[in-house]
Amino acid sequence: MLWELFILFLKVGLISFGGGYAVITLIQRDIADKGWITAGHFQELVALAGMAPGSIATNTATLIGYSQMGIIGGIVSTIGIILPSLLIVILFTAFFLRMQSNNWVRSSFYGLRPIITGLIVYAAIHFGLGSTEASWLSWQSFGMLLICAASLIAVIRYKIHPFAVILLSAVGGIVLF
């Protein structure tokens, strides 16, 4: 199990281009396939991961590892997801930097970036709709929609720091639900 966790997050770490949010999609598929935790629990963990500083991907890995195998599981998963970044950054810094202006590299990123966008859009759709056990026309989903819309406006229009938005949303949740 520990080995499985390590390998899973190693793979995720290796392809986690675009950092945090795209990875939610990557992890969610694998976790669902393995049947380790339910979709609802997964979303709870991601919400929890969003409350801590640090990349949401790494935090989610830590939480999943911890929920499966305790502290050791958390450590192993965290190392698994970070190790590829560490190695690749070292390689890039040592050799690859000169290739930045290479046309093939540029073309590759030209094609890769919209894929990352797609992964994040999917994460938003999945994460936004996924957990509504309750029916659509409930107080529950209305409240979520309200908080989501308010958060969007706060971040985009008023440039409020995301962490403040998260704290305020927690308060909003306590008041509404």
Binding site: A47, I120, A124, I147, S169, A170, G172, G173, F177
Partner: peptide
Amino acid sequence: AALKGVHAAVVALI
């Protein structure tokens, strides 16, 4: 309830 609020905010951040 607080976690549900955070969930909604995380959707917005995504």
